[in-house]
């Protein structure tokens, strides 16, 4: 096979890609509010959950854009930070306004030397930012506890997610700049939006109503 084909699925069946963990709970609560017959899966080792007319795939969040872009899932929910880093050409019709955070440039409090090396889990976003600012720094891709890179001198600065800022304060770090604000997004496969629009269009509309910030017309 040269192309990504999926086993036969009825056009009225939906396959959703959701990231495991807390986003999954919030996502399932929101999707069932929007009318999908989903319940929180009981704690089990199952990675694929079947509901009437809907299949939910439980994935690592970085994999959600991949499953949706390749059409194995019709739609998914994932943070904008992960989506930007994935660079996948999926539709992203709804900002779900949860899992809010920001991607920031972080340094040790008082650090003022030039930035020659940046540690991050987001090399793509980091490179784009540094290039835009004309900072000729090298980017080191790391996998976790990014703050340590700044504290140990592995890097002169780090680019990482900030939710409340309390971890930063506890580690004598400060936000120097904000690259962008992130929140959970509904993403949709380009073919699925067209061929399964009878199911996806109403879902998109309902999710927009449910997540529109108070005081804003929908």
């Amino acid at each position: 096979m040269t192309a990504q084909t999926t086993p036969e699925r009825r056009p009225d069946h939906l396959t959703l890609a959701l990231p495991k963990g807390r986003i999954m709970d919030d996502a399932i609560a929101l999707l069932s509010q929007a009318g999908l017959p989903l319940t929180r899966p009981e704690a089990s080792r199952a990675l694929r959950h079947e509901f009437p007319g809907v299949t939910v795939l439980e994935l690592r969040n970085q994999d959600v854009p991949v499953y949706v872009d390749l059409g194995v899932a019709d739609a998914g929910i994932v943070g904008k930070d992960v989506l930007l880093e994935a660079g996948r050409p999926v539709y992203e019709p709804v900002d779900l306004h949860f899992a809010e955070c920001r991607l920031s440039l972080i340094r040790e409090i008082g650090a003022s030397g030039p930035i020659a090396r940046v540690g991050t889990k987001y090399p793509r976003a980091a490179r784009a930012y540094l290039q835009e600012r004309g900072i000729p720094a090298e980017v080191v891709k790391l996998s976790g506890n990014i703050e340590l890179a700044a504290l140990t001198g592995l890097a002169d600065a780090v680019i990482d997610l900030v939710q409340t800022g309390s971890t930063l304060r506890a580690n004598h770090l400060e936000e120097v700049d904000v690259l962008f604000h992130s929140s959970a997004r509904l993403i949709v496969n380009r073919t699925a939006l067209k061929l399964r629009r009878e199911r996806l269009r109403p879902l998109i509309a309902r999710l927009r109503e449910l997540t529109a910030p108070a005081g804003e017309e929908s």
């Binding site: 192309a3 990504q4 084909t5 999926t6 036969e8 699925r9 056009p11 872009d69 390749l70 059409g71 496969n189 380009r190 073919t191 067209k194 061929l195």
Partner: peptide, 9 residues
Amino acid sequence: AYVDGINQP
């Protein structure tokens, strides 16, 4: 042209 089951036109 879209065909169900394939992610690319």
